[in-house]
Structures are given as structure tokens and as C-alpha cells.
């Protein structure tokens, strides 16, 4: 029975009608603009970028921090989205091989005329100390992001 209290199955007509109407809409996403935790997105973007980069090289957090010449605690602050000094960001930019100015903008601590650079998604970061390697698709995406962030 349609419209009844049972777990009725949608009819083909219902499915086609709603599928066609839904396809005219750009999205069905409901939830939260940024993260569920309400944290600011700037750290999300950088954490995603650093995570991808570390995974592409099989590098732990400690190794990355050492290579950038910063403390592990500073790297963790970066990845949480906390404010860090421009000097720290510049050192990270040096390791990533990207423009320090664009990286600072990506972190929400400056401005950039290239508005299309923001928003690297948070789902890209590796959380373990020994990150999983990237698959070819992820590696290609990382290269593209780095290319766009390059000076």
C-alpha cells in the first residue's frame, strides 16, 4: 500500500518521477556547511594537502615536521586549523614546493586573488603515523593541486 505505515517499496513510476526531478537539482546534500564539529575549514584544506603529500612519499608526521624544520606540535596545530605563524607556513610551503603566499591564503590567514584555490577536502589526509600510499587517481589529484598552488 502506497502511503501506508508499512515499509512499502517505491513503485517504478514514483522512482522515475523523483529521479528525473532530483537530477534537475545540483545537490541533495543536507547537514553542515563545513565540518560537523563546527571547526573552521582552513586547517581542513591544509591538513588534506599535507596528508596527501605525506602519503605520496610514505612520510610520517614526525618526518614531515623534521623536513620542514618545525616542531611536531606545530604541525599538529596546523592540521587542527589553529593559527600558526607565517614563518611556519612558509617552511611548510617550501617542503611542498608551493607558493607561500597561496598557502597562507589557503589557510585563511591572508588574501589571494585566486579564489579558486580553496577547499581541499578533509577526507584526503592520512591519520596514521605511517600513511597509506596514494592510488593513481589520488596521486594525479595531488599533482594537480600542487601545480595550482605553485608560485
Amino acid at each position: 500500500m502506497i502511503g501506508g505505515e508499512s515499509m512499502d517499496r517505491a513503485t517504478p513510476e514514483w522512482l522515475r518521477r523523483f529521479a528525473d526531478a532530483e537530477a534537475e537539482c545540483p545537490s541533495v546534500s543536507a547537514g553542515a556547511r563545513q565540518r560537523a564539529s563546527g571547526e573552521q575549514p582552513r586547517g581542513v584544506a591544509l591538513a588534506g594537502l599535507i596528508g596527501l603529500w605525506r602519503r605520496s612519499r610514505g612520510m610520517s608526521s614526525a618526518a614531515f615536521a623534521a623536513m620542514a624544520g618545525i616542531e611536531v606540535a606545530e604541525l599538529e596545530r596546523l592540521e587542527r586549523g589553529d593559527e600558526v605563524g607565517g614563518g611556519v607556513l612558509a617552511q611548510v610551503a617550501g617542503v611542498l614546493g608551493v607558493s607561500a603566499e597561496k598557502l597562507i591564503w589557503l589557510c585563511g590567514q591572508g588574501t589571494s586573488s585566486e579564489a579558486a584555490l580553496g577547499g581541499v577536502p578533509e577526507g584526503l589526509g592520512a591519520r596514521g603515523s605511517i600513511p597509506e600510499p596514494l592510488n593513481p587517481r589520488q596521486a594525479a589529484a595531488l599533482n594537480e593541486i600542487i601545480r595550482n598552488l605553485a608560485g
Binding site: L52, G119, V120, P121, G123, L124, N135, R137, Q138, A140, A141, L142, E144, I145, N148
Partner: peptide, 8 residues
């Protein structure tokens, strides 16, 4: 991976 590919 698809999110990353879309960002790129």
C-alpha cells in the same frame, strides 16, 4: 579519491 579528483 573522487573528491580529490573533483578538487583538481
Amino acid at each position: 579519491a573522487h573528491r580529490a579528483e573533483l578538487v583538481a
